Simulated assay, not measured.
Amino acid sequence: MYKPVFIFLCLLFAIFSQAAPIVQDSVSQKIEKEIHYDTTENLKPPIFSSEIIEKYKSESTFDYTEQIASENWWTQFKSWIWQLWLKFWKWLVGDFEAGGFVSFLVHMLPYLIIFAIVVFVIWLFYKLNPGASFFKSKEKPDVFLSEEEKIIKSKNIKQLIEKALADKNYRLAVRYYYLLILKKLTEAELINYEFDKTNSEYFAEITSEEINFGFKKATLLYDYIWYGNFAVTEENYLKAQKTFVSLENQIPESID
């Protein structure tokens, strides 16, 4: 309990002892100053010949000439901006001391403003530029498949055909059967399936004349039934089915 009080008193005593002036007797502190003279004999001043002086002049080490740097347009522009800045502050706050807080603020504020502008530009570029995602962790992009691609790549098309027939949706059954043909042609490596390809591009890829002819006929039926504005009967479907089955039997399981 007494220890903190004791430490506090010691610190207080030390502070007052440093602050208190030391009074000394001016008589007792009088110091006698002794003057020393150089009594060395035979001293001679150094003699420098003109040759030695010229030699020293030619050395850059002894060249103390102050060279004033010539001002270019950039230094003149900065000086002009700085003078405008100082005039603005003098108009705003009047004369300010060189070492005061206002002076410090006047000298530091331009750098703070430039720093804020740079930070704002970087933030704006990051927000508006699509390439800002470059600074994020790279992840695999989501693959968006069309309905047709999903059916060809991940569905059991045979079951879809059977369900459409059970629902008597013959138009949809034709669509599923055509997608089944595209799937088998792709698996046999006769075509390279892509959603945005045209029929003409598929025709150009199939080298077999027999399969090419059958695929053109199946495509014509599919376009007529799927995109035609009429009701598709069971009879219409059975006619298209014969063409699809015939073509399906021509497509090999795989081509090496």
Rank of each mutant, 00 (worst) to 15 (best):
V143G: 03
I122R: 09
L190S: 06
K197F: 04
G131F: 14
E147A: 10
H36M: 13
Q83L: 02
V23W: 09
I152S: 01
K163N: 12
I47G: 07
I206R: 06
E32A: 09
I122M: 14
F8Y: 12
R171L: 04
I181L: 15
A69N: 15
W74N: 10
E234A: 14
W91E: 11
K30L: 13
D256V: 09
T207G: 03
L185Y: 02
L160T: 00
S200G: 01
N192Y: 06
I152V: 09
Q83E: 02
F144E: 10
S146F: 09
A240I: 04
F77H: 15
D167P: 00
K87A: 02
Q24H: 03
I122P: 02
E209S: 12
I191N: 02
F125T: 12
Y126W: 08
N72F: 07
W226D: 13
V143P: 03
G131T: 11
W85L: 02
T207Y: 03
F13V: 14
S58V: 07
Y202G: 00
S103D: 08
K163L: 11
N212L: 09
E235Q: 14
T39Y: 14
P110I: 05
D25Y: 00
N72T: 12
L92D: 10
G94W: 05
E54C: 06
Y126F: 09
Q241K: 15
Y178R: 07
T207M: 05
Y64Q: 10
E34Q: 09
I15V: 15
Y222A: 03
A204D: 15
K153R: 15
S79I: 04
T61Q: 13
E248G: 01
S26H: 11
S200H: 01
K242R: 13
F244P: 01
E59R: 09
F213K: 15
E32H: 08
F96Y: 15
V102W: 09
I35F: 07
R171D: 02
I114A: 05
E54S: 14
S28N: 05
M108R: 05
F101P: 00
T75R: 04
I255Y: 05
A19N: 12
W85A: 02
F244K: 03
S146D: 12
R171Y: 04
G131L: 15
K44D: 08
K150C: 11
Q24P: 00
S70L: 13
W80Y: 07
A164F: 05
E248P: 01
G94T: 09
A204L: 07
I81G: 11
K155R: 13
L180C: 01
Q76P: 00
A116Q: 06
E235T: 12
Y111S: 14
W123K: 11
W80I: 06
N129R: 10
Y176I: 01
K57A: 06
I52G: 03
V121Y: 11
G131I: 14
W226M: 06
K216L: 02
E205C: 08
T75D: 12
K150P: 02
I15K: 02
E253H: 08
N236T: 04
Q250N: 03
F135N: 10
K239C: 10
P252S: 08
S246F: 08
A19S: 15
L165R: 11
L86F: 11
T233V: 04
T243A: 13
G214F: 01
F244M: 05
N212G: 06
V119W: 03
I152P: 00
V102H: 07
A14F: 15
V27G: 04
T198P: 01
G100K: 04
E189N: 12
Y202I: 03
F115W: 00
K153V: 06
D63T: 06
C10Q: 00
